[in-house]
Computed example of a mutant assay.
Amino acid sequence: MRSFGLAHVDPSRVIHAFPDLEPGTEGCPRACGHDEPDCALDGWVAEGHADRARLYSLRRLLATRERTEGD
């Protein structure tokens, strides 16, 4: 049985599933994948605007998408 994959989803649209994190992306560099060292979400979450677990979930989804894309 195959699992649901996100390979067909544009990575820039995945953030829309996290409305609590989306405002924090305003300071991100252009074409940010939200898992880079200069991603603005790290500072935004550290300031207490959102739960760190939500950022972890976003990044886990993005990583899953990247892994399935290479298959």
Results as ranks from 00 to 15, higher is better:
residue 1 M to A: 14
residue 1 M to N: 11
residue 2 R to F: 10
residue 2 R to Q: 06
residue 2 R to N: 09
residue 3 S to H: 08
residue 4 F to A: 14
residue 4 F to R: 13
residue 5 G to R: 04
residue 5 G to D: 04
residue 6 L to E: 00
residue 7 A to S: 02
residue 7 A to V: 01
residue 9 V to N: 08
residue 10 D to A: 14
residue 10 D to I: 07
residue 10 D to E: 12
residue 11 P to Q: 06
residue 12 S to W: 07
residue 13 R to T: 06
residue 14 V to K: 03
residue 14 V to D: 04
residue 14 V to H: 03
residue 16 H to P: 01
residue 16 H to T: 07
residue 16 H to R: 10
residue 16 H to N: 07
residue 17 A to N: 05
residue 17 A to Q: 10
residue 19 P to Y: 12
residue 21 L to I: 10
residue 21 L to P: 15
residue 21 L to H: 11
residue 22 E to M: 14
residue 22 E to W: 09
residue 24 G to D: 08
residue 25 T to A: 15
residue 25 T to Q: 09
residue 27 G to E: 09
residue 27 G to P: 11
residue 28 C to D: 15
residue 28 C to A: 14
residue 29 P to V: 13
residue 29 P to T: 14
residue 29 P to R: 14
residue 29 P to I: 14
residue 29 P to H: 15
residue 31 A to G: 13
residue 31 A to H: 15
residue 31 A to S: 15
residue 34 H to C: 11
residue 35 D to K: 13
residue 35 D to W: 05
residue 35 D to T: 12
residue 35 D to E: 12
residue 36 E to V: 09
residue 36 E to C: 15
residue 36 E to N: 08
residue 37 P to V: 12
residue 38 D to H: 14
residue 41 L to G: 02
residue 41 L to Y: 01
residue 41 L to T: 02
residue 42 D to A: 05
residue 42 D to P: 00
residue 43 G to E: 06
residue 45 V to N: 03
residue 45 V to L: 05
residue 45 V to F: 08
residue 45 V to Y: 03
residue 45 V to R: 00
residue 45 V to M: 04
residue 45 V to C: 03
residue 46 A to C: 06
residue 47 E to R: 13
residue 48 G to I: 04
residue 48 G to V: 07
residue 48 G to C: 06
residue 48 G to L: 05
residue 49 H to L: 04
residue 49 H to W: 00
residue 50 A to N: 08
residue 51 D to H: 13
residue 52 R to V: 02
residue 53 A to N: 11
residue 53 A to M: 12
residue 53 A to D: 15
residue 54 R to W: 11
residue 54 R to Y: 05
residue 54 R to H: 09
residue 56 Y to V: 15
residue 56 Y to H: 15
residue 57 S to Q: 14
residue 57 S to L: 15
residue 60 R to Y: 08
residue 61 L to F: 09
residue 61 L to Q: 11
residue 61 L to V: 06
residue 62 L to F: 02
residue 62 L to Q: 06
residue 63 A to F: 05
residue 63 A to W: 00
residue 63 A to L: 01
residue 63 A to P: 00
residue 64 T to P: 06
residue 65 R to V: 08
residue 65 R to W: 04
residue 66 E to M: 04
residue 67 R to C: 01
residue 67 R to K: 02
residue 68 T to Y: 00
residue 68 T to H: 00
residue 68 T to F: 02
residue 70 G to K: 13
residue 70 G to P: 02
residue 71 D to Q: 05
residue 71 D to I: 02
